[in-house]
Design a protein around this nucleic acid. Structure first.
Length: 219
DNA sequence: TGCCAGGCCGGGT
DNA sequence: ACCCGGCATGGC
């Protein structure tokens, strides 16, 4: 008898409690954070976001007014700083041109439309796009990240070869369409990943250990 | 002290 | 279609 995704969710929620994601004081900060956190620890991203706030860069328009070198210095603590300053610029330019800099207007255009548009921006891939849509826009799209894939494949709940969209569809087809649920579930998977499901797993005290298949973790 | 972090892109086979 | 290197700072 295999655990359902809902049962896994309930177990995580009872173990860790609500995570209250996404960290960020505004949709703009959430969007910025989604780009800056690519393959980087959130601790570093916080420093970069603090820099932006201290410099009064709190809107797409404010980013638009910055020289590229200034933007690079502000986001430097997040790592890959030249690359990320470029990606951030690409995304902000898109929003300024297409939506006159209004995040509200962008999200009002609807989930499937905006998702496709975001994916055309160089530097915005599926996880970044879905993070923006879910955590900044409150739109019901499930976010898949490295921990999502790792936790599920180690427990034998997905094919380890499955790609981003396969995992995303798996969640969306086996859960009710619910922004709060998607939000909390992803945050809980990152939490359990941080504590127990690193590259070398520590399953001894993991709340999901009793849900392991015969033979323990895969891979 | 190395290893790794809430990806994504571009170039080579 | 795949595979792989590059990107960079800071925490544990």
């Amino acid at each position: 008898m295999r655990a359902t995704l809902k049962e896994v969710y309930d177990r995580l929620l009872e173990s860790f409690g609500p995570q209250g994601w996404w960290p960020g004081e505004s949709p703009f900060e959430v969007l910025v954070g989604a780009v800056l956190v690519q393959n980087t620890s959130w601790k570093n991203v916080v420093k970069a976001i603090d820099n932006l706030r201290d410099a009064d860069v709190t809107s797409p328009q404010a980013v638009g007014d910055l020289a590229q070198e200034e933007l690079e210095e502000l986001v430097r603590p997040a790592g890959y700083f030249r690359l990320k300053a470029r990606r951030l610029r690409n995304l902000i330019e898109f929003i300024l041109r297409r939506y006159d800099g209004s995040l509200d207007a962008m999200f009002a255009a609807g989930l499937p439309v905006v998702r496709e548009q975001l994916l055309t921006v160089n530097g915005v891939g599926p996880e970044t796009a879905d993070s923006i849509l879910l955590y900044a826009g409150n739109l019901p799209t499930f976010v898949v990240d490295t921990y999502t894939h790792r936790v599920l494949s180690r427990h034998g709940w997905i094919d380890p070869e499955s790609d981003y969209h396969a995992v995303k569809d798996h969640f969306e087809q086996n859960l009710t369409t619910d922004v709060a649920l998607y939000n909390e579930y992803h945050a809980l998977l990152v939490r359990v990943g941080h504590h127990y499901c690193r590259k070398t797993p520590k399953c001894d005290e993991c709340p999901l250990v009793e849900m392991l298949p015969e033979g323990g973790v895969q891979g």
